[in-house]
Design a protein around this nucleic acid. Structure first.
Lengths: 187, 187
DNA sequence: TGCTAAACGGCGGGGGCCTCCGTATCGTAC
DNA sequence: GTACGATACGGAGGCCCCCGCCGTTTAGCA
């Protein structure tokens, strides 16, 4: 009794994921699952079988990039300049979120509707920044009451607000910089 | 030849708008136009006749509140403390955006896809903050390169990122405060 | 009261999401 | 090589939504 995944299933999974990446890049987070199925040459039920719910699909689509961002965070956790490390990472996240249509929605969605899922992108990212944030806070560069969730929320918000902008990356960078230094930082 | 709006049209307009307010409050910016029509007891074509496109409906729904916010801005343009006036207004906007489901999406939408429309909510709000911002900048409380569009974008982003949060208003306030004082304000 | 233009709303097309279920295919055991 | 069981597939149908068309009703003026 084979309890392994069948070969054709794996093939279809890969095909669907590949198509989904293109499709999400082109049409954002609300790309048509139906269309993805058609382009991939499978029935719509098969898409749903492999990815139960749009969130699951998006999660898979962004998975590699998310991992890469987490790895970057891990790598710079011992940097000499804790503040620079944190800001660099936030910059990277913002840039990626701006370049990858749909990711911001995906993050916002699972941050807010299912914050318990361990595999959720947002949770992973939060856990990844957390050490950077803590070190920055210890060095006094960041106020102690700022949480990782706050940072994720702010970046997500910036990405959402700039998503359909002419040049999302530039605008995102600009707004992030503004957020970092503060609109009106005098106490 | 009567080129005035007919009485029944005006009645229907009002009915639809009233229903739309409830419906948007309950289901957010992507409330079903079809459903609104059904509840209002009119054909779906009538809804679309009065409000061509979802954006138009949302605009109408939020119109009064937007006006009220603009009025508040006008009223405090001569306040002694320019910084406090600006921040107060931003606070008010954030609070309202958090309390009114759908408004953030609406703002983000017409800020980004049709920034030319004069009647668009976002444009009005931008024009309303502009004087407050200028005065705050002159007083040195805000860096001179900050634009009204930046502020709108940030608040919109915060609202979007907190919209489905458990307590959007509290979270929004928190994030706004963080944005005002800066994540890491050291130069 | 009659007439015209304005407004209405039902209807059908197109599309998306979801579920069910009969069928094809894979992998294995013989 | 074949036969069998589990696994995966995909088409069909239901439901909802958005949109545009167009025949019909109705308000408002003469």
């Amino acid at each position: 009794m084979p309890h392994h995944q069948r070969a054709d299933a794996r093939r279809n999974y890969a095909r669907i994921l590949a198509v989904a990446e293109r499709e999400v890049a082109a049409h954002g987070a609300d790309a048509s699952l139906e269309r993805i199925a058609r382009v991939a040459g499978v029935g719509s039920a098969t898409v749903r079988r492999h990815f139960p719910g749009r969130a699951a699909l998006l999660e898979a689509v962004f998975h590699e990039r998310i991992e890469s961002l987490c790895a970057r965070a891990d790598a710079s956790v011992d940097a000499v300049d804790a503040r620079a490390a944190l800001l660099d990472w936030l910059d990277g996240l913002t840039e990626y979120a701006a370049s990858a249509r749909g990711m911001a929605e995906a993050l916002a969605h699972d941050r807010l509707v299912e914050p318990e899922r361990v595999s959720a992108c947002a949770v992973k990212l939060e856990e990844a920044v957390e050490p950077l944030l803590r070190r920055a806070a210890e060095s006094g560069a960041v106020a102690p009451d700022v949480t990782a969730a706050d940072l994720l929320a702010l970046v997500t918000g910036i990405a959402l607000a700039t998503e359909r902008h002419a040049d999302p990356a530039a605008e995102g960078r600009r707004l992030l910089e503004l957020t970092v230094r503060g609109i009106s930082p005098v106490s």
